[in-house]
């Protein structure tokens, strides 16, 4: 049980790192940045290159991936979304999907579709004394990734709640015009939000790669969608909501993975096949029962 909990939290941590980007960008732009999963993927590959080509230490590789992903986020915002700022919502949405497909295909063109092995940057062996004393298998990897995620989330919370630019982000999220009337350069705040969200997703990409040992150009797809569901679950636009939603997604997925359903002798549904279906069932259920999400404020404008 505690074993499952640790796995769930690890998975939830990665989802949180992606979900935050969705939720923050939605906050300032009312746009689902569907290319966000691909930013995660690119971040993962930058980390892979940093680790296995340039042999950088883990922390530095994460940092490089964050910077690279932030730049990519800025380019996407500048190139694809800013020109459409006053266009109909649907145009921006279609563009977002287009950018996502573009990045996937560019990835396959450059890197090939086959998964690449990710170097085990941190010792993947279980921590022996924990296994002996408590009977839970926790790897050093999990501990480092969780600690790093916690640090990133804490840093982000601090930026959003305390810094001038963080407050400006919240102001723009609430009322873009009123923010302009304060002298806030809304374009700059939006660009910053993309950079911030992308950097965090980039870190998530490295953690994911290290955790699962592979990276491939389509790796952003499923985690991207799951994180999106997490963001909606928590209440899109809400930063604490995204963290909570991601944790719950991790729990639900890990929980479902461990069950096996024997529908009939020929039809046995294992958790891993059910997992994704459950994620989407969760999304549909929220949209029906609580469209604003767990921590979202009801009555706000939706996509």
């Amino acid at each position: 049980m505690s074993q499952q909990l640790i796995n769930a939290i690890s998975l939830g941590a990665v989802y949180a790192l992606i979900a935050l980007g969705y939720t923050m960008v939605y906050g300032v732009l009312r746009l689902i940045n569907f290319a966000h999963g691909e930013v995660f993927m690119v971040g993962s590959f930058i980390g892979l290159a940093a680790l296995s080509v340039f042999h950088l230490p883990f922390a530095l590789a994460v940092l490089v991936a964050m910077v690279g992903a932030a730049l990519l986020g800025a380019v996407i915002e500048r190139g694809a979304y800013r020109p459409l700022r006053s266009a109909p919502r649907l145009a921006a949405l279609i563009t977002a999907i287009g950018v996502s497909l573009l990045l996937q295909n560019l990835g396959m063109l450059i890197l090939g579709a086959a998964p690449r092995a990710y170097p085990p940057a941190i010792d993947p062996a279980p921590i022996a004394w924990l296994e002996e004393r408590a009977g839970v298998v926790v790897t050093r990897q999990q501990v480092v990734i969780l600690a790093a995620t916690a640090a990133i989330l804490a840093g982000l919370s601090l930026i959003v709640s305390r810094t001038k630019i963080g407050k400006a982000m919240r102001a723009v999220s609430e009322d873009r015009q009123a923010a302009q009337l304060m002298g806030i350069n809304v374009d700059r705040v939006i660009a910053f939000t993309f950079c911030l969200g992308s950097a965090i997703a980039g870190a998530g990409g490295v953690f994911y790669g290290v955790y699962y040992g592979t990276a491939d150009p389509l790796m952003g797809l499923m985690p991207g969608i799951k994180a999106f569901v997490a963001a909606v679950l928590g209440g899109i636009g809400s930063v604490p909501g995204a963290m909570l939603g991601a944790l719950l997604m991790g729990l639900v997925e890990t929980g479902v993975s461990s069950v096996t359903l024997r529908v009939s002798p020929s039809l046995v549904l294992t958790g891993s096949t059910l997992r994704d279906a459950v994620a989407f069932a969760v999304l549909i259920a929220i949209l029906l029962l609580r469209p604003a999400g767990l921590l979202g404020r009801p009555g706000r404008e939706k996509v």
Binding site: K164, K167, A168, R170, A171, E174, D175, A178, A179, M182, I184, R297
Partner: peptide, 12 residues
């Protein structure tokens, strides 16, 4: 800005 505190509004 409804979600910001009075002080934060003034800071903006």
């Amino acid at each position: 800005f409804a979600g910001l505190t009075v002080l934060e509004n003034l800071e903006m």
